[in-house]
């Protein structure tokens, strides 16, 4: 009966994942490998960025720098992703019964880790798929942006390369992301114990699910858990890059939701 409860929890979490994340790993992989039929617009230099932006926005504002255009797109996509992660969190059994302050804390610290996990599914060694506007931005082009903009995405490619070797599918990722959100050691939690209990159930469900879904990889849970520490480091570094951009660029405006999240974060 215990295993049946865990399997039912896995199904609930997976269904919440499918209901809330518009671009799944399966869909992203189909597009990246050309199985989906329609190929994305490839953005590989300033000219292709300019063309793509005119295509999506109707006009290209030459007054605006490419770096700012790219970073604003990135911010826009981040806010959408944070909304998706929030809706997903609300569907995780037990999350809604937590104190509202703790729900805020879990999201403040968890949304970026969840987001960078999901973005790994949209990345290959050559670039990242931005399927909301059907484009693929190359890693080499992102590296050519001026500093500190060039440092925004590169560490995420490095993480994705390591994370993607685990070959988790969407049903695994659903539980992995739920475990990231329900983390009992975020700063300032009022009832860490209650959250640890919820995370414990998710981790047990994840363990059982991986055993059934990847019978040939007995150490997969341990490997996946190690990646959670890497994600925390990735987010800390990301917050530093955002501060560097803020300090270096007068024209830069951080979205109010991102401002809230980064303020007093680490």
């Amino acid at each position: 009966p215990h295993e049946a409860n865990l399997a039912s929890l896995s199904r609930l979490v997976y269904s919440a994942y499918l209901n809330n994340f518009t671009l799944t790993k399966e869909k992203a992989r189909a597009i990246l490998t050309g199985r989906a039929g329609q190929s994305p617009v490839v953005i590989h230099d300033m000219e292709s960025l300019k063309n793509a932006e005119s295509l999506f926005l109707g006009k290209w504002n030459i007054e605006r720098e490419a770096e700012l255009v790219m970073f604003n797109r990135y911010q826009h996509r981040s806010v959408e992703a944070i909304c998706e992660v929030t809706e997903f969190a609300k569907s995780i059994p037990g999350f809604g019964s937590l104190d509202l302050n703790d729900q805020v804390t879990l999201l403040k610290y968890g949304v970026h880790e969840a987001m960078f996990t999901l973005w790994s599914a949209y990345m290959n060694k050559d670039g990242i798929l931005v399927a909301t506007n059907n484009s693929f931005v190359t890693r080499e082009f992102l590296k050519t942006l001026r500093k500190p903009y060039s440092s925004v995405i590169e560490p995420k490619f490095e993480f994705a390369a390591r994370f993607n070797t685990l070959e988790l599918d969407d049903s695994d990722l659903a539980l992995f992301v739920a475990a990231i959100i329900l983390c009992g050691d975020r700063p300032g939690l009022l009832d860490a114990h209650q959250i640890e209990e919820l995370q414990d159930s998710i981790l047990q469900a994840f363990h059982l699910h991986l055993r059934n879904n990847h019978p040939d990889a007995p150490r997969l849970l341990a490997h996946a858990l190690q990646k959670m520490a890497d994600l925390r480091q990735l987010v800390t570094e990301h917050a530093d890059v955002v501060v560097a951009i803020k300090q270096s660029d007068a024209a830069f405006a951080l979205h109010p939701l991102l401002q809230e999240i980064y303020e007093d974060m680490y």
């Binding site: 806010v79 944070i82 909304c83 929030t86 809706e87 609300k90 509202l100 302050n101 729900q103 805020v104 804390t105 999201l107 403040k108 300032g188 109010p256 939701l257 809230e260 999240i261 303020e263 007093d264």
Partner: peptide, 21 residues
Amino acid sequence: LTERHKILHKLLQDGSSSPDI
């Protein structure tokens, strides 16, 4: 905390239809 995270708070309560998004 909810005071300093008004948009996150709103997202939790009302979803992404909030005008702040």
